[in-house]
Simulated assay, not measured.
Amino acid sequence: MNWVPLNSKQIRAVSYDPGTQVLHAKFAGRRPVRHVGVPPHIYDNLVETSDPEFYYKYYLEPSRVQTGWWRKANLSSHAVKLLIILVGALVITATALEENGELPIHLSEITEAGTTSPASGQRPAVSPQ
Rank of each mutant, 00 (worst) to 15 (best):
Y43F: 15
Y59T: 05
P124L: 08
P118S: 10
L46K: 03
D17C: 07
P40K: 14
G37N: 12
A25F: 03
A79E: 10
L75V: 09
V14T: 11
S15L: 01
A96Q: 05
E53I: 03
I42D: 01
K26C: 06
P32D: 06
S15Q: 07
V47G: 10
Y59F: 15
K72T: 13
S77Y: 03
I105D: 08
I42L: 11
P124I: 02
N7P: 09
V33G: 02
P128Q: 05
R30T: 07
Q10P: 01
P32W: 02
L46R: 07
V4H: 10
I85R: 14
T116G: 11
L60P: 05
K72P: 00
H35R: 03
S127I: 04
S15W: 04
T95I: 07
N45E: 13
Y58P: 00
V47Y: 01
A79F: 02
L90C: 07
E99L: 14
N7G: 11
T20Q: 04
H41W: 07
V91A: 15
T93H: 14
S77D: 14
N7C: 08
V87Q: 03
E61K: 15
P118A: 13
Q10C: 08
R123T: 07
L83F: 00
E102L: 15
M1F: 03
Y16T: 07
R34I: 02
S120M: 10
D51A: 11
Y58A: 14
H78S: 13
R64D: 04
T111G: 11
N100K: 15
Q122M: 12
I11P: 04
L103Y: 15
S120K: 10
H24L: 14
Q129T: 11
S127K: 02
A96T: 10
A96F: 10
S8Y: 07
T67D: 00
S76M: 03
K81F: 00
W69I: 02
T111M: 15
R12Y: 02
S117D: 06
L75K: 14
